[in-house]
Design a protein around this nucleic acid. Structure first.
Length: 415
DNA sequence: ACTGTACCTGGGCA
DNA sequence: ATGCCCAGGTACA
């Protein structure tokens, strides 16, 4: 470990409103599994550097070690590319909201959710890990993989937090960062067994086999899929081991520039059934026809960037984003909302596994109180008036009863 | 083509 | 305490 950063850090900043990017949501909504939060700072090994971010209502603050690794883009260029800041998210939100009243309701509480433009190889392996799994464990698996095979980039000293009760400093920590290992590092005969020891389960074999396939074709082939049309990209990805339609859509959407790819997982299926009139399926696993029908429905509804729009609703549906709000004390009230009429297109005429839901009448549907609290809480966060100082981070959700700060974690550990 | 089932692991829940 | 279910599915018969 050559680099250890204790030097004073110089922050640079980009003007970015929260409506365009909300890192507290985007970095933990299951797109990337490697970002870590310390206090108000988010850090991740990215493009051969340790990148750290903070956000104010008006700016994205960043620094990196090293700041400009040889053979890699500058950190500012990296950020513009990674967050795709050339794309106006507020324009897209307006378009989606105009086309879809349900999107409008949900999105008013979940602003600034955009797709990251990730490294395709890391994205691919991460989502092979995602099958039949949860975000928490996926994060641990990916971190274990990077620690075992990734190139060490250095370590960062986490500023010593202070015990809120007695004002005494708590334990200090140094966190090491590793790059994501390239395919050739995961081709060896010993890799599968070591992955299993790291808790990858049956996914260990998928990863090794896919690493060998990608290594044979070359990383250029994988990255080159960015230039190919969506259908072709999906056909190619599905040939890889452990990659089915859902994982292929994730990779197409999150790292291969296919904005219309809509990954249909259990959450999206539930959303389609609960909010968009898709009938209950008989089987637990989706048929290809139902899978495709849901994607087509959303592409017809939201347009060519349907995958981006889907991410907003997916995030709003994540347990971690509603659970954290259950704890807050908020009036428990229930509201009723109009359910939209949805006519599911049935192109074959012989049934897609999707049943139509009495399209004649507009039904009333009672929402859970949970969801109401989501709305209340997030609005409070966004509407908070603050000045532009980094230390005045009233808008950060740590102050809203979410024990995610390092100080809180350390404190709980001591109990 | 379509359907059912096994698959690693860990946490929540009855 | 033990078993069952679920978690951003996929491979295989």
């Amino acid at each position: 470990m050559s680099l250890s950063c204790t030097a004073k850090r110089e922050w640079r900043k980009l003007p970015v409103p929260l409506s365009e990017l909300h890192i507290n949501t985007v970095l933990r909504c299951g797109q990337s599994f490697r970002w870590r939060k310390n206090g108000n700072e988010w850090s991740c090994a990215l493009s051969a550097r340790i990148l750290t971010l903070q956000q104010t209502p008006t700016h994205l603050l960043y620094h990196a070690i090293p700041f400009s690794p040889p053979g890699h883009p500058t950190t500012e260029d990296l950020l513009r590319d990674y967050f795709q800041l050339n794309i106006s998210l507020s324009d897209l939100y307006k378009k989606w909201a105009a086309a879809d009243p349900h999107f409008q309701r949900i999105s008013s509480s979940f602003g600034g959710i955009r797709m990251l433009r990730q490294d395709p190889w890391e994205n691919l392996v991460s989502f092979i890990c995602s099958s039949n799994n949860n975000i928490s464990r996926i994060s641990g698996m990916v971190q274990g993989l990077c620690t075992e095979w990734g190139a060490p980039l250095g370590s960062v000293d986490i500023p010593s937090p202070v015990d809120p009760e007695d004002g005494m400093p708590l334990e200090e920590k140094t966190v090491a960062y590793y790059d994501f290992p390239p395919p050739e590092k995961l081709c060896g005969d010993e890799v599968e067994g070591r992955l299993r020891k790291l808790g990858f389960g049956y996914r260990a074999g998928y990863i090794v086999e896919t690493a060998r396939m990608v290594n044979d074709k070359g990383l250029d082939w994988l990255v080159g899929l960015r230039e190919r049309p969506y259908q072709e990209v999906k056909e190619e990805l599905v040939k890889l081991k452990g990659v089915g339609p859902k994982v292929a859509d994730c990779v197409a959407l999150m790292s291969l520039d296919k904005k219309g790819a809509v990954p249909v997982d259990t959450h999206v299926l539930q959303i389609a059934q609960r909010d968009y009139g898709f009938g209950k399926t008989k089987n637990k696993t989706l048929t290809t026809k139902t899978y495709d029908a849901i994607g087509e429905h959303f592409r017809n509804l939201w347009g060519e960037e349907a995958g981006w729009a889907h991410s907003v609703l997916f995030t709003a549906d994540l347990k971690s984003f509603s659970e954290q709000l259950v704890k807050t004390k908020t009036e428990t009230t229930s509201v009723s909302v109009k359910k939209e009429r949805v006519v599911v297109k049935n192109e074959t005429g012989t049934g897609t596994g999707v049943e139509k839901e009495t399209p004649g009448e507009v039904k009333e549907q009672t929402r859970t109180t949970k969801r109401v609290r989501v709305k209340v809480e997030v609005k409070k966060e966004v509407n908070e008036e603050v000045n532009d100082e980094v230390k005045e981070q009233m808008w950060d959700d740590d102050v809203n009863g979410v024990p995610s700060s390092l100080a809180e974690r350390v404190k709980r550990r001591r109990r």
